[in-house]
């Protein structure tokens, strides 16, 4: 609501702007060129009364909802109001063709279901709570650029599960805007099972689909071993997860 009020206020100011400018317009106004830090030159008009008409500049990119310069989905905390056992993830992006050196500025996208097994953005999802539509919502989705240490960090909640799939988080990785990896990561079931019987997840209980029998993870034991996020922590304290994303660049 605060943003909307701000926008309404801004709209009012914008609407009254031209009247103020007209009121200050004087025949004796002089026009002077001021230096700018950019490549463009702005003009400032001085009036005899001493007041100055604010220089006009381009509006710039269409502002995002909170006035951010970048897409709001470019965020560390993707929780967005969803409840669950806290999970802090650090993805480490490395190049397997370069002595496993870290890769910075890789875009890491993640998305996963909430504690009840639903995704944001989808309509008519069957599940624990019946058919649910979360079109227009973006919780548990986001992306980060890996830092100079190759790390992309997210704050989220431990995923729940939905029928037919092992517990998982989706990842996509882009380097220089080129898709380099689409994958999914999972967890040790000894931990998932504990989380899934904890208070917030208990209505759904333990995921009956085991990693080894999952349609995605179950096709290769070797792959599965390389798709498990390492976790430390507890239900009460939350978990910290680390996973190394190896790219053959």
């Amino acid at each position: 609501m605060e943003r909307k009020n701000f926008l309404r206020t801004f709209a009012l100011v914008a609407a009254t702007g031209p009247m103020i400018i007209d009121g200050c317009k004087k025949d004796s106004a002089t026009k002077s060129t001021t230096s700018t830090t950019g490549t463009t030159t702005s003009t400032t008009t001085s009036a005899s009364s001493g007041c100055v008409v604010t220089p006009t500049e381009t509006e710039g990119p269409y502002p995002y909802v909170g006035g951010e310069a970048t897409n709001p989905l470019n965020r560390v905390d993707v929780t967005d109001g969803q409840t669950g056992v806290p999970l802090s993830i650090t993805f480490l992006v490395v190049n397997t063709n370069d002595n496993c050196n870290v890769v910075s500025d890789a875009r890491v996208d993640i998305w996963h279901c909430n504690k009840d097994g639903y995704y944001s953005g989808y309509a008519n999802q069957p599940g624990l709570l019946g058919s649910k539509s979360y079109v227009g919502e973006t919780w548990l989705r986001g992306y980060e650029l890996s830092d100079s240490n190759g790390a992309a960090k997210f704050t989220t909640i431990y995923p729940g599960w939905y029928g037919g799939r092992a517990t998982h988080i989706h990842i996509e990785v882009y380097v220089n805007s080129v898709m380099k990896k689409t994958s999914q990561v999972t967890f040790l079931e000894t931990i998932s099972d504990v989380v899934h019987v904890s208070t917030l997840y208990a209505a759904h209980g333990v995921n009956p689909v085991r990693n080894a029998s999952d349609s995605v993870f179950g096709d290769s034991a070797t792959d599965l071993a390389n798709e498990i996020m390492t976790l430390v922590g507890s239900v009460s304290a939350g978990y910290a997860g680390t996973y190394t994303i190896g790219l053959a660049l």
Binding site: L7, Y62, Y64, N71, P72, L73, G136
Partner: peptide
């Protein structure tokens, strides 16, 4: 569906 996430924040501003 995938592209929709890139524009939701603009649509939100339509109130």
């Amino acid at each position: 569906y995938k592209l929709s996430f890139s524009v939701l924040h603009f649509i939100e501003q339509l109130d």
